[in-house]
Write a protein that binds this DNA or RNA. Structure first.
Lengths: 171, 171
DNA sequence: TATTGTTATACTCTATAACTATA
DNA sequence: TATAGTTATAGAGTATAACAATA
């Protein structure tokens, strides 16, 4: 046996005790599986889930500043610095000076970042659809709603509301 | 603003683009929320999710060896060494010599580990139920089944089958 | 004073590879 | 040879705290 195969959610003969009754452990097992498939699918680009999130968020919210990115991603500013550094090293992201505030940088994808992101999104969608395929459309909707509720978020607010026009919200 | 509050799944005014359509991102958001609440709930014992899993698995499968624990948890043996070291430092786990194989150790909880685990399990269950409470019993069953399917596992085999007799106490 | 980005430092969790002592 | 546990080392990803420049 190699030291690292992939995760086996239930090893035969093992008693998982209370773990099998916990919603949290069920979510964790699913997340491990999704993470493994994500990383394997995105290996050609050196993209991990946090890097993917950062690229998408920056591409959709041009001019975002580092502190805002950290807030959106739920990480410390120091973590955002490391993340942006890594994406800069990959040639995907750049810091741009902000005339009005000489302390700050606004983030943007490079040309390479923009074009590669198109391929990367396709790869991520293929991966995600491969995982979601095991459910009916109805089941998928249901599952997504429950997960969103669990996350404490607004239920899949795909539809833009009257008071979220689209620029960055004033804090 | 402090540097680290808790994760906000959807920051107003931010366009999440494709992220809002991905099942994987929905699972990740839910997992972050569950993880945060788990760690906060278990802070008094210094217990993290992996440590909790290890304690439960060892307690339910006495005599388990380190390599087996690594396999069950889906981590490398070197990671299991570190995990067991940490639990030993907390006074919760011990390595016991195996007479038949002088290379190996079998793992066991200490007395303190056993008694504290009872409290820890209560705290984890309280946390988990607080999270699950937002769903009806039927929804919970449904959600758990879908998550298990996503993880690629046997659908919530709570019911003991003919060929898994085990000293596996039904809780 | 407060904020922005940064650096320094540390901890957790993970990995690979090589080592040791047994088998 | 192969296996069990360990050590060494590395790399994400996270955190806190302090700092310089700027607001």
């Amino acid at each position: 046996m190699q030291d690292t195969d992939h995760f086996v959610p239930r090893v035969p003969g093992i008693d998982y005790g209370v773990l099998d009754t916990l919603l949290g452990y069920a979510v964790r097992r699913a997340q491990i599986r999704l993470y493994e498939d994500f990383v394997a699918s995105l290996a050609p680009w050196g993209i991990t889930p946090p890097r993917f999130s950062a690229m998408v968020i920056v591409s959709r919210n041009p001019g975002l500043k580092l502190t805002q990115l950290a807030k959106v991603m739920g990480i410390a500013r120091s973590g955002a610095v490391i993340l942006v550094d890594a994406l800069e090293d990959l040639g995907y992201m750049q810091r741009q000076a902000v005339p009005e505030d000489r302390r700050a940088f606004s983030l943007a994808l490079t040309q390479k970042g923009q074009s590669d992101l198109l391929e990367i999104i396709r790869a991520v969608q293929a991966h995600d659809e491969r995982m979601a395929r095991m459910f009916s459309a109805e089941q998928q909707t249901q599952l997504r709603e429950q997960l969103t509720q669990l996350a404490g978020g607004i239920p899949t607010a795909q539809v833009p509301t009257a008071d979220s026009p689209g620029g960055l919200a004033p804090k």
